[in-house]
Nucleic acid binder design. Structure first.
Lengths: 352, 352
DNA sequence: GGTTACATTTGGATCGTTCCAATCAGCGGA
DNA sequence: TCCGCTGATTGGAACGATCCAAATGTAACC
């Protein structure tokens, strides 16, 4: 009986402290903690009472060390400030939490060097797996060098540049970009449009290429021609999109509708149209991609494609957890469906 | 020389593996790892080469266990999907990363029971400190029960209900809500408005009360009367705000301007005004709060208050890191300034 | 050659938990 | 009394790093 009861407050309570006070061994307390049926119910009660009394908190890191397990999942995002990824992160965290893991967060701000640093730092904490939405221009060798081949990786949203080393089995979760814009384009065609543009994005990003492909596919299937000036590149921001609006009308024939790279671009285009005296949703039809919060509240509400980012987050987490259960299973490439949300921006063409 | 060189790939490389191969002791390798000047440059080179060759990755958890340190900061948010908090999280993560820590994420979805669960789970991973933006209705005793008094806590954005136990020294970082709306109100007054409403939010949230107080303060200081029907409550969503617009004009005299609880509400009010045939920014002036992305792109651009959420995130992290450096320092209550961003929605009153 | 000084290196013990084989108490049956 | 059996409990050795006091080797000085 040392000077125990004085409660100096500042020292971590360990299994030993509890064991000593209860006159049992460390091992028994550990068994109680894990709810083992081996321990006698009377001693269990005593130990549990003591745990409560001393305010014991479990040291999962120590347990993980001994058991050679991990209880965390790392989530590395190129841009957390983007609401799409924020939702995604919320979904990941929810699923990861439900599975009894905890989320390690890392943001790369679209910098692939920062991505390397972040991966390097996170990997030292020994996550069971990593969910990575790569930064622009990040490549496979780089990622592999930073994290090694031991930790399972799930790639989200973008493919990596460079060759995948065959021995690193990395799973994939992508959005069905191509089908999305195909649906949007088909919808505009069904509305009666014949002159449809593809607006925004940079052609060197894989998602933009895929979205453009979906558009081109639908146009071709409908036997519609695409004029060169109907394909306008711009940064995926409202500001730049607004500024590039004029390019659509630089030559004849002008389009009557546009499939936009994403919602930000579509909203920018709305601004640009307004400035030209065209009312979007009446004089000109357009669609977006992402279904950000503003899409439903814009004037007019924006027809767009929703990827349900929170659900995608859950899905990503579950794919990774699946992989943890079966490390040897063959790698999976999952393409998540996107859904067309029809609102008022995709009006029929004016008869004029 | 066991069957080492065959590289079975699947086993973690430890200090021992390196040491054995280099014919030095574990301790020496450890010194190399930490860049100690004690070790001879020749052996250092040998060891470093071997580390690289075997693809060693540092096990920070083991080190933390031995050193009784921690290298993580927990970030618990009520709503990550909200862009404001997403930005905040990005700021926290950046600062936390710069300090050599890693961010543990937890979302509570505004549920105080979930908050308890999340805190309980995170605390087991032994973070050096916690940044908490409490869920609605969360209280001090609850939080204390979930995380104990050992780990430093920084509260962001909302106060906790219930009495703070005096022995838990918790730091605070709040926004200067009151000063914000006071500035906005003063700005409207300076524009020439005399009949100014306060629109939106629920009076039982502390931030709404503070914002209302700032408005009332400015009105009183200017000797302006506030009509009862100028104070309209509504949920902080665009939809509800649009629906409540009529309440402002339910009686005479009608206001010529409104200070809104936040941007969402202000954008909703814009919608509602449009529906009544009033053009916001010309026939009616209004201000928001938060400076969300859409504020600058709305029609008209919205005068609002910016709290620079990313900077607040950095600041929160730095306050917490500060506390880690001086655990015994007295608790700090920091009020972050907000800044008025004047755009076109806050026009002068029509002379009519 | 012996002593001291300095630069390197090292063998345990340790952090808080879990695993495992071994132990112990109690009891019924031979 | 001895044996085996069941149910509970336990001591030590891990996990992968760090700390510390002590050991080693080498050069320098008297």
């Amino acid at each position: 009986m040392a000077t125990e009861s004085t409660h100096p407050v500042h020292r971590k309570i360990t299994l030993n402290d509890i064991a000593r006070e209860c006159d049992v061994s460390r091992a028994t307390v550990s068994l109680v903690l894990r709810g083992s049926p081996l321990v006698n119910k009377h001693t269990r009660a005593r130990v549990e009472e003591e745990l409560r009394r001393q305010g014991y908190v479990y040291n999962r890191a120590a347990a993980n060390l001994r058991r050679r397990t991990s209880s965390s999942i790392a989530l590395v995002l190129n841009d957390l400030a983007n609401p799409f990824f924020a939702e995604f992160a919320a979904g990941v965290d929810a699923a990861v939490g439900d599975a009894g893991f905890v989320t390690l967060l890392g943001c790369t701000s679209e910098s692939s060097t920062r991505e390397q640093a972040v991966l390097g730092s996170l990997i030292e904490h020994g996550p069971a797996g990593i969910i990575l939405s790569p930064a622009e221009g990040s490549n496979a060798q780089q990622v592999l060098a930073a994290m090694g081949a031991q930790t399972p990786l799930l790639l989200f949203n973008r493919e990596l540049g460079g060759d995948l080393p065959e021995y690193a089995h990395w799973d994939l979760l992508m959005l069905d970009n191509q089908r999305g814009t195909r649906l949007a384009t088909e919808h505009l065609i069904a509305q009666g449009h014949r002159r449809i543009a593809f607006f925004g994005g940079h052609r060197d990003s894989s998602s933009c290429r895929q979205r453009h492909a979906g558009y081109a596919e639908a146009m071709q299937a409908a036997g519609l021609r695409i004029e060169p000036h109907w394909q306008v590149e711009c940064a995926p921001t409202r500001l730049d999109a607004a500024g590039q609006t004029a390019a659509l009308f630089a030559a004849e024939p002008a389009p009557t509708a546009a499939v936009c790279y994403n919602d930000a671009v579509a909203l920018g285009l709305m601004l640009g149209l307004n400035q030209r005296g065209l009312q979007p949703g009446r004089d000109f039809a357009l669609t977006g991609f992402d279904d950000i919060a503003e899409a439903s509240m814009s004037m007019p509400p924006l027809t767009t494609l929703t990827a349900a980012p929170r659900d995608r987050g859950r899905q990503a987490a579950e794919l990774l957890l699946q992989r943890l259960r079966e490390p040897a299973a063959s790698t999976r490439r999952t393409i998540a469906p996107v859904q067309l949300v029809i609102r008022e921006s995709s009006c029929p063409p004016t008869t004029a």
